[in-house]
């Protein structure tokens, strides 16, 4: 069953076709990887899905609902969470505060009740804290809970970003290059978490990734892009054998 569908999506910057008529759909519970050379339009697709960019044409359908015109914060509250290629954490806040921001779309208290800090707000805050702590336990971040992001090493920050996205309780998680900048062990850890996120939490994952070993290890289907167009779509093995993909990577 399709959880998320992209129909004929395009984004043109002036004469440049960053994304040029792409359609695919992502099934509920699968790990869907997007690969391609630099500048192929992978991250641009993420930015279109999380509505940071306005598509030139095409539609985005999430759980049967057209989200093409929804603002970014609404997309988040519908259950689409994401991470960023170059880590966009709140550097001067603690790890815990970062995770709690992920709970923002579940906040229902009015501004006035927050200013008064009513007992209801306090109870809700304790519940959000509980959820954040579950994520902390899930990712094994207990030691760093109260540390500022600015003080944490890169590898940990990468994990924190995944944690923050998980705090949204997403149905769909977009991971933008989860392994970039990580060493082999850390990458294996990421692979294990992606498996658990899908298996234990039941979250569907779309990831942009360069590391083919990670892609092969965790993804059900792979989509290869170049110049904003789809080159191939299938299992990791199929896509890696595809002559068009080979040519794009080897620069034929």
């Amino acid at each position: 069953m399709s959880l998320f569908a992209v129909e004929d999506l395009a984004l043109h910057f002036g004469g440049i076709r960053a994304v040029d008529g792409i359609s695919f759909d992502v099934r509920d519970g699968e790990v869907f990887a997007i690969i391609g050379p630099n500048g192929a339009g992978k991250t641009t697709i993420f930015n279109l899905i999380s509505r940071l960019y306005q598509p030139t044409s095409g539609r985005l359908i999430f759980r049967g609902q057209d989200i093409t015109r929804r603002p970014p914060h609404v997309v988040a509250s519908l259950g689409i969470a994401r991470t960023f290629q170059n880590i966009e954490l709140f550097a001067n806040a603690t790890l815990l505060q970062n995770l709690l921001i992920g709970r923002h779309s579940h906040v229902s208290a009015s501004i006035l009740s927050q200013i008064l800090y009513t007992p209801a707000v306090r109870r809700a805050e304790i519940a959000h804290r509980g959820r954040a702590e579950e994520v902390i336990a899930f990712l094994g971040l207990e030691r760093h809970r109260d540390r500022l992001i600015a003080d944490l090493p890169y590898g940990i920050r990468k994990v924190v970003e995944i944690g923050r996205a998980l705090c949204i309780d997403p149905r769909l998680l977009l991971l933008d290059e989860p392994s970039s900048g990580l060493n082999v062990e850390e990458t294996q850890e990421i692979a294990a978490w992606i498996d658990e996120i899908r298996g234990t939490l039941g979250v569907t994952v779309i990831m942009v990734e360069h590391d083919m070993s990670l892609v092969s290890a965790v993804s059900d289907r792979v989509m290869a892009l170049n110049y904003g167009r789809i080159l191939a779509l299938g299992t990791a093995a199929e896509v890696q054998r595809d002559p068009e993909v080979v040519r794009a990577y080897l620069g034929g």
Partner: peptide, 22 residues
């Protein structure tokens, strides 16, 4: 409260704040 967290989030990164539902 959540409002205060979202203020700090906007300071940190507007883009990721909105992707978190702010």
């Amino acid at each position: 409260s959540p409002l205060g967290r979202s203020l700090v989030a906007i300071h940190g990164s507007e883009i990721s704040a909105q992707s978190m539902g702010v």
